[in-house]
Measured scan of single mutants.
Amino acid sequence: MSDLPVKVIHVESGKILTGTDAPKAGQLEAWLEMNPGYEVAPR
């Protein structure tokens, strides 16, 4: 599992989470399930 943060964006508000606020790569799927409305942000 990776500890690198994955940049995500809230589709409706446009809020972007990066760095320490962003979910870790190894926890991404579970985090997205618990935080509806967020998607992986385009690079």
Results as ranks from 00 to 15, higher is better:
Val40Ala: 08
Leu32Val: 05
Gln27Tyr: 06
Ala30Met: 09
Leu28Trp: 00
Glu12Gln: 13
Lys7Ile: 09
Met1Gln: 03
Val6Pro: 07
Val6Ile: 13
Lys24Tyr: 01
Pro36His: 02
Gly14Asp: 02
Pro42Thr: 10
Leu28Lys: 08
Pro42Glu: 14
Asp3Ala: 01
Trp31Ser: 08
Glu29Ile: 02
Ser2Val: 05
Pro42Asp: 15
Glu12Ile: 10
Gly37Thr: 03
Met34Ile: 09
Lys24His: 06
Val6Asn: 09
Glu12Ala: 13
Gly26Pro: 06
Gly26Arg: 10
Gly37Glu: 06
Pro23Trp: 00
Met1Asn: 15
Arg43Val: 14
Asp21Glu: 14
Ile9Met: 11
His10Met: 04
Val40Glu: 09
Ala22Thr: 14
Ala30His: 11
Leu28Tyr: 08
Glu33Phe: 02
Lys15Leu: 13
Ala30Trp: 06
Glu12Ser: 10
Ala22Asn: 14
Val11Ala: 08
Glu12Asn: 07
Ala41Lys: 04
Ala30Arg: 13
Ala41Phe: 12
Arg43Lys: 15
Leu28Ser: 06
Ala41His: 07
Val8Pro: 08
Leu32Trp: 00
Trp31Lys: 11
Val6His: 12
Asn35Phe: 00
Pro5Asn: 15
His10Pro: 00
Met34Asn: 14
Gln27Cys: 11
Arg43Ser: 13
Val40Thr: 10
Met34Glu: 12
Leu4Gln: 14
Pro42Gln: 13
Val6Thr: 13
Val6Asp: 10
Asn35Pro: 00
Ser2Gln: 06
Asp3Ser: 07
Leu4Ala: 05
Asp21Trp: 00
Ala41Val: 14
Asp21Gly: 07
Met1Phe: 13
Gly37Trp: 00
Pro23Tyr: 00
Val8Glu: 10
Asn35Thr: 06
Leu4Ser: 14
Ile9His: 04
Lys24Ser: 08
Glu33Met: 07
Pro23Ala: 00
Leu28Cys: 02
Ala41Asn: 03
Pro5Ser: 15
Ala22Gly: 08
Glu29Asp: 11
Val8Thr: 04
Gly26Gln: 11
Pro36Val: 01
Glu33Pro: 01
Asp3Tyr: 03
Ala22Phe: 05
Trp31Tyr: 04
Asp3Thr: 05
Val11Thr: 12
Ala41Ser: 09
Arg43Leu: 12
Pro42Ser: 12
Leu4Val: 05
Ser2Pro: 03
His10Ile: 00
Ile9Lys: 12
Val6Arg: 11
Asp3Cys: 07
Glu12Asp: 10
Trp31Gln: 13
Val6Cys: 03
Lys15Asn: 11
Pro5Asp: 15
Val11Tyr: 13
Arg43Ile: 12
Glu39Trp: 00
Asp3Met: 01
Glu39Leu: 02
Gly26Lys: 12
Pro5Gly: 14
